[in-house]
Simulated assay, not measured.
Amino acid sequence: MSASDSHTGAGRSGPVAAPGEGRHLLVVDDDDRIRELLKEYLAREGFRVTGAAHAAAARRLMELLEFDLVVLDIMMPGEDGLSLTSWVRSKAATSSTPVLLLTARGDADDRIEGLSRGADDYMSKPFDPRELRLRIDAILRRTGPKPIGPKEVRLGDALFDMERLELTRDGQPQRLTEAEAQLLKTLAQSAHAPVERMQLASDTADITGRAVDVQVTRLRRKLEKDPKNPRYLQTVRGVGYMLAPD
């Protein structure tokens, strides 16, 4: 996958099924360039994407967050992708999480080994990102649609309508900017699970994440009785933010 490859999905040819819109993917690859290109491309395709540079980081993330699918490179220093696949399948919390393996090795023995460890599919590098998207869609179709979440979330005396993007407090409407409304919706869709700060920043033009911090501060003033000690819009140190509705 090259820099130019990551943009080939911008002008899709023909309709593409999208069973994975809004799904949360974990991309594990020790190659920073490949990992960031995949994150950028898949985020543009409508997925939430978290990245990990090695197996240890992936384990920590999977113990903390719930993912709908893992895109996993086999050849990594230290623990490789095959071993990590076995770990994913051995844990009750992740045993049903689909795994798509990526590797520069195309030998049949490697494919068989990966599938025997519990991987759902296998792609050899280099690959067309459009094929990756289609394979992810096919896996997610087999695992079934993402459960439909609540249309409203209760946050103490505040209520957020996720369809209308409207916030009320004690029955009184609270004005939200478009950016605040979208941020609150993203957090509400992953209620009680941390969302990476830079993943939230991917929806803005500010790659530093500072705009997200400003929006969170403003939202707390509209949601919290004590914005300096937030109950509902929480900071998860080292990760990002989490919404904890009633």
Score class of each variant (00 low, 15 high):
D120G: 02
L72F: 08
D110N: 00
A57T: 15
L82A: 03
I74A: 04
R141W: 13
S124H: 11
A57K: 14
L132P: 09
R89A: 04
L115T: 08
I136N: 02
M76S: 06
A93L: 07
R105L: 02
D73F: 03
L132A: 09
L134G: 07
D137A: 15
L61M: 14
M75C: 03
L64Q: 13
R130I: 12
L132M: 14
L64F: 01
P77V: 02
D107F: 00
R89K: 11
P129F: 14
D68F: 09
E45N: 04
T97K: 07
A104R: 01
G78S: 08
T85V: 01
M123P: 04
F127R: 13
E79W: 03
L101C: 08
D73I: 02
V99E: 01
M76L: 09
D128A: 15
T94Q: 11
L100R: 01
P126N: 13
E66P: 00
S116C: 10
I136Q: 02
K91D: 12
A57N: 13
P126H: 12
L102A: 12
R89C: 08
R135S: 10
R59I: 07
D73W: 01
E79Y: 06
M76N: 05
L134S: 10
V70Y: 00
D107I: 00
D110I: 10
V71D: 05
I139S: 07
L134W: 03
A58R: 00
A108V: 08
G106Q: 07
R142Y: 10
T50L: 02
G114L: 01
R130F: 07
V88G: 11
F127V: 13
W87A: 03
A57S: 15
G114S: 03
A55Q: 01
E113V: 09
S96L: 11
E66A: 08
S96Y: 04
D137I: 07
V71I: 15
G51R: 02
S96I: 08
D137G: 15
T50F: 01
L102E: 08
G81I: 03
L64I: 11
E45R: 08
D120H: 05
P77T: 02
D80S: 13
V49R: 04
T94P: 09
L101K: 08
D73V: 03
K91Q: 15
L132Y: 10
T103R: 03
A56Q: 14
A93V: 08
D137M: 10
R48K: 06
A92V: 05
D128S: 14
S83T: 14
M76T: 05
R133I: 15
